[in-house]
């Protein structure tokens, strides 16, 4: 099966520092692919290159048969790539429901003129957006918070809101940046449950994660990054016994 996302020889320098060096990676349709590695390995750089928040120094990114590495972030979103950021930036001054509704931007089109003239298209879309947002909030366990200001949510819920916003755009590829960091037991379990559900529905997921336990439960394949290079790629059981990976990152298998 052809991959949904293919990253080829991707490099990024910041001044003289090589944050990423010729990284290759792919995500098959329906696959949950995790990227792990110690701090400074280049995980976040890779993530931001795929999302479009950074541009590559060299190399290419192909999504669904199309080069996307020169597209601005909103165009990538329209192609079906959704992102949940680690620092969970919510849109302050907007309700939880409105935050989720913003995510629908990727799949809606009504412009300013349609809104000002209250064209039927605008009204139809508004209805769809509301329904989609309600469904997404429900899945993320936020239905009870819908009318609260987003900035009132505790961190765990803000993470969940990121997921709801991402889902509202009906993505085909979901990028998750350290979704579990800073979350406590029950919040973490709920999040892992949601990711498992999405995976079961066939959504492709690229998961950048620090927490090896979280990754072992969710990922079909794991890519290990260290100092901007790929150390190894494969199913988690293989990775955890790979001598290179063990010496660089995981430590002795328990």
């Amino acid at each position: 099966m052809t991959a949904l996302l293919t990253v080829t020889n991707l490099s990024r320098r910041f001044g003289g520092v090589h944050a990423l060096r010729r990284v290759c990676l792919d995500v098959a349709p329906g696959e949950t692919h995790a990227v792990i590695g110690p701090n400074g390995a280049g995980k976040s750089t890779l993530f931001r290159l795929i999302g479009g928040q950074l541009t590559a120094s060299a190399g290419g990114i192909v999504y669904d048969g199309q080069r996307i590495d020169r597209l601005p972030p909103h165009r990538r979103a329209r192609l079906g790539i959704a992102i949940a950021f680690q620092d969970a930036p919510v849109f302050r001054g907007m309700t939880v429901a409105e935050n989720a509704m913003v995510g629908a931007h990727a799949v809606t089109r009504a412009g300013p003129l349609a809104a000002v003239l209250r064209l039927p298209r605008h009204r139809r879309e508004e209805k769809e957006i509301r329904t989609a947002a309600a469904a997404a909030l429900d899945r993320a366990g936020l239905a009870a918070w819908a009318d609260r200001p987003a900035e009132d949510l505790p961190l765990g819920r803000q993470r969940a809101l990121q997921m709801a916003r991402a889902l509202c755009g009906r993505p085909r590829l979901l990028l998750l940046d350290e979704p579990a960091s800073g979350l406590r037991g029950p919040e973490r379990t709920a999040l892992a449950g949601l990711i498992e559900e999405l995976r079961a529905e066939g959504l492709s997921i690229l998961l950048v994660e620090h927490d090896v336990g979280f990754v072992s439960r969710l990922a079909d394949r794991v890519t290990v990054l260290d100092l901007g290079r790929v150390l190894a790629t494969g199913p988690f059981p293989e990775i955890r016994t790979d001598p290179v990976v063990i010496s660089a990152y995981l430590g002795a298998p328990a």
């Binding site: 928040q53 909103h74 992102i83 930036p89 001054g93 931007h105 799949v107 809606t108």
Partner: peptide, 22 residues
């Protein structure tokens, strides 16, 4: 409208707004 929500979103978190398709 949709555009208005996009505007309010980009006022406080432009990166997340862009990633949402705004």
């Amino acid at each position: 409208s949709r555009v208005g929500r996009g505007l309010r979103a980009l006022a406080t978190a432009p990166v997340a707004a862009g990633a949402s398709g705004v």
